[in-house]
Amino acid sequence: MRKYLACIATLCLLTSYRGVAQRSNVRAADRLLQSEKPNFAEIDRLLREAAAHEETKNDPYTYYIMGLVEHNKSKAEYRKLITPGVVGDTASMFRSVVAEIYGWRKTDSLERTPDKTGRISLKYLKKVQDYVKEDKDRIYSAGLFWLDRKSYQEAVNAFTAALSAQHILLPLGEQNLPADSTTANLTYYALVSAYTGKLYPEVIRLSRYKDRAANRNEVYQFVARSYLAEGDTLGAMPILERGAELFPETTFFFGTMISIHQARKEYDKAVALIDRALKVAPTNPNLLVLRGNVYFLAQDWARATEIYKQVLQLSPDNYDALFNLGQVYYNNAVTLLSKPLSTKLDEHKAKEYFRQSLPHLEAAYKRSPDQVRDLLGNVYYRLGLEKRYEELYNEAKK
């Protein structure tokens, strides 16, 4: 029994010693950092061990020193860049100034968290905030630097770090970033970087800032498109709904929701959405085209025809209305001819539908020849207009 107890005591002492050793590691890293030529490889090793150990992984001092290491690296590189005759590395400077925020964000979080007695003890936060004030503009510049070079993930990292810097600078008790131009621009650039780089999960992660961003209409579209790119229509719908409320004249939000309902064959819901949008902009030709398209997909040719004609009264050169109305007449004709027992009267009506489709398709062809050519050629053929049929395809060969 005595041997067993002695063994337990030894293990306790070893555990305690290892914890003390890890705190000593952080102090050793601090001392090395203050030397004339810091050994950054050794400093990083000591800090990694401390961050992985139970006794020091939740110690603000560990992460304060982590941030300070990167801050010093960034300053050292900056001094090289501004010293004549000395070669510096701009990319390294910006990577370090962004990396410092990881450690200091953790310091900030740990120090703002009350202990078991409800007390908050601030040992390092004031120092961290002073350093962040010194570096926040450079972190912003890092984002612009990487965005300009189309290094989108690094740009996202930098702008996100700049947002974290704004969080660190908040007074105690505050949790939300101020609705100011700095927050608005940082958020916008972070989302632009992520969306342009097709980093759709990053866009979705950053979407919690969407209502603080500049150019909110554009930002809501980024977020919705990112959900759709990830195949998540369920996640996209609330964004599209809110976008439609905030920006009712932007047809993207209504149009995309309508497309989703159309894909699900929920035509009544699609029409209800369009009617809602038309209350805001009753003569918007794009919305009217969408309404016509719903009836087109539902094969309600009569209603589709009526709406496309209405669009062409408002906007005679509207390509979508011209092409789609031409297709409606064509589909009416083909439907008649496909009847198992079609009559001469059906053939006569079908020919009339082909004639009605012709001027609309010819007008649409002038706007988009490649998309319209085959359908127009089919109408020429059905009407026996061989010469125009040949001219159409000879023109395509030129």
Score class of each variant (00 low, 15 high):
G85I: 06
L163Q: 05
S74P: 03
D148C: 00
V372D: 04
L234K: 15
N318M: 02
T251Y: 08
Q166G: 11
D30V: 01
L246Q: 11
E154A: 10
D30Y: 14
A179F: 07
L46V: 02
T250W: 00
K126R: 03
L336C: 08
Y295Q: 05
M1R: 05
D232H: 09
E386C: 00
L312E: 09
A76D: 13
E54R: 05
F40G: 02
D30T: 12
A214Q: 08
L172F: 06
F296P: 00
R388S: 13
Q356A: 10
I101R: 01
K136W: 02
S151E: 14
V379H: 01
T335L: 09
K351V: 00
M257F: 01
P178Q: 12
I139F: 04
V192S: 11
V311P: 02
R276P: 00
Y4D: 12
D232Q: 11
T160N: 12
P84T: 07
H261M: 10
V223A: 05
S342H: 14
W146D: 04
V311N: 02
N176I: 07
Y61D: 06
K127R: 11
V334A: 13
T335Q: 12
T107V: 13
V69A: 02
M93S: 03
E111L: 10
S342W: 04
Y4E: 14
Q153S: 12
L11T: 08
Q356K: 14
L278G: 07
L11G: 08
P238G: 09
